[in-house]
Write a protein that binds this DNA or RNA. Structure first.
Length: 488
RNA sequence: GGUGCCGUAGACAAAAUGGUAAAGUCACCUGUCUUUCAAGCAGGAAAUUGCGGGUUCGAUCCCCGUCGGCACUGCCA
């Protein structure tokens, strides 16, 4: 039997991290089993569904490297299938028309709550007489279709993550709505609803394993009933733990950044995101190494190593994983990812005309980056024209003898048309000897003069970069003025 | 209110068919390298395995209870 799994997002928002993580698990499972990973867009909620969200979901999955083998299928293109299934249930007497108004239902639930009872539909229209039906119709009411749920049923399945799960049908809230009321008075019934559409699709698409978040557990119980009613084979189920926010609640849009787009924008790499998401609730068998690609994970992935407890989302760990990917990326590749962030920050960089310089810059600041978006901040002193001296840099510049040292360096530079690394080192050595001071003093002073700060990436490299832009002389001059004015 | 699930260090978590001092990773701290920061490397600290009881020679792993957290409880998905 070939394994077939699916990710079935609804296009009512951008690709959410929770959906993406579910997609990761499905993808890993499919790849490990040599099965198929299918994308299905659940757009039966026509009110809230938007094509741009579908696009966002597709591009997000693609960005993460979660390629699908079939689809995307759209539920709105498959309405006939659902209609047929609903009609079938109606014909078999397993479903019926319910004419309750939403006000009536709400009132009923309120009353139940007031009596401290569990809110549920009381199946009041299950056995309407023809006269009663006719009366509702005459009132202009349009019915929904409800699927009968027999309270005494016990639903059981062997969950691939949680083991044996049992559910009493009486805890499912009464007969469930599977189709909305028709908007068109001619129609038999309206839009099919989630649980019905899912079961029809999963059956039709030959889905063998349904891997989804544990917030769907109650739906699984309902859906098993539907599979049986439709005479379909029940697939295997696996319910993964939820991703939790800092407070331990299900991560939701209210927690700020939750869409994959946002993470991309913030400078996270797709490999890092996928890596981190796979670790949210799953551990590889020999788990001392936590940096791995999706394909490497797929080799070892198994649902029985998926954890049952919810996983708290940890920015620090994501950052660390992201930094690992950035640090291990060759500069010629990394630079291409950095350019947009520089440009967004207002720096006029042009990869085509300035590639070697930008690549050297990238190699220099690479190890300081946690997110791609750190690039402007980490490289601003090398990219920017003007310089603001920090307090300790000014202090450094005002130290005795520093002015002379900088002057010597400035003079030394004049004799080079193009400074090389060796030249730079030679100059430092010479000036150090000449001034009879420690090398540290020269380096610190030079750093203060060139960068305006006392800390940062390798100074010689930074100097060379500035030199290639002709900025070293300018800054040396500027710092000399700075030290003079302050000295007086 | 009901139902379900979960509860190992700040976070993610491993392991034991019940058996010697409970993996690993991040964060944190220290050292090292360096002109400096970061990265890297080396090391350190951190858990009476939610709590109480039971079974047992022995439980964190089994049983009972309890507390806490979360999820679900829609003509959303």
């Amino acid at each position: 039997m070939t394994v077939r799994v699916r990710i079935a997002p609804s296009p009512t928002g951008n690709l959410h991290i929770g959906t993406a993580r579910t997609a990761v698990f499905n993808w890993l499972f499919a790849r490990h089993q040599g099965g198929k990973f299918i994308l299905r867009i659940e757009d039966t909620d026509t009110e809230r569904s938007r094509p741009e969200y579908t696009e966002n979901i597709k591009s997000g999955l693609t960005w993460l490297g979660l390629n699908w083998d079939e689809g995307p299928f759209f539920q709105t293109n498959r309405l006939d299938l659902y209609k047929k299934a609903i009609q079938q249930l109606l014909d078999k007497g397993l479903a019926y028309r319910c004419y309750c108004t939403s006000e009536e239902l709400e009132q009923m639930r309120e009353a139940q709550k007031a009596r401290k009872q569990a809110p549920r539909y009381d199946n009041r229209h299950r056995n309407l007489t023809e006269e009663e039906k006719a009366a509702f119709v005459a009132e202009g009411r349009r019915p929904v279709i409800r699927f009968k749920i027999e309270d005494e049923r016990l639903i059981e399945w062997n969950d691939l993550v949680r083991g044996k799960v049992t559910w009493k049908a009486s805890d499912l809230g009464g007969d469930m709505v599977i189709a909305r009321a028709a908007e068109n008075p001619e129609a038999e019934f309206g839009q099919p609803l989630y649980n019905l559409a899912v079961v029809v699709d999963d059956t039709d698409m030959g889905i063998t394993h349904v891997v989804r978040g544990e917030d769907h557990i109650a739906n699984t119980a309902k859906q098993i009933l539907l599979y049986e009613a439709l005479g379909a084979k029940v697939p295997e189920f696996a319910h993964t733990p939820l991703i939790l926010n800092e407070k331990g609640q299900k991560l939701s849009k209210r927690d700020g950044v939750t869409s994959i787009d946002d993470f991309k924008e913030m400078g996270f790499l797709p490999e890092a995101m996928a890596n981190y998401m796979s670790l949210l609730g799953w551990t590889p068998p020999d788990s001392t190494e936590e940096i791995f690609t999706l394909s490497q994970a797929a080799e070892k992935f198994d649902l029985d190593r998926v954890n049952k407890a919810g996983a708290k989302f940890d920015w620090a760990k994501l950052d660390w994983i992201n930094s690992q990917y950035i640090h291990n990326m060759p500069a010629d590749k990394l630079v291409e990812l950095l350019v947009p962030y520089w440009q967004k920050a207002g720096y006029k960089v042009d990869l085509e005309s300035d590639r070697p310089w930008l690549e050297t810059l990238t190699a220099l600041i690479g190890p300081s980056l946690t997110r791609l978006s750190d690039a402007p901040k980490e490289s601003r002193l090398l990219l920017g024209e003007s310089l603001e001296y920090s307090e300790d840099a000014i202090e450094q510049l005002q130290k005795e003898g520093v002015g002379e040292i900088l002057t010597s360096i400035k003079e030394a530079i004049e004799s080079y048309s193009q400074l090389t690394q060796d030249d730079a080192k030679d100059i430092v050595k010479k000036v150090t000897k000449q001034a009879k001071v420690k090398k540290g003093l020269v380096m610190r002073s030079l750093r203060a003069a060139l960068m305006g700060e006392l800390q940062g990436p390798d100074l010689i490299q930074s100097w060379l970069l500035l030199s290639q832009k002709g900025l070293d002389k300018v800054r040396l001059q500027q710092s000399l003025e700075q030290s003079m004015t302050s000295e007086s």
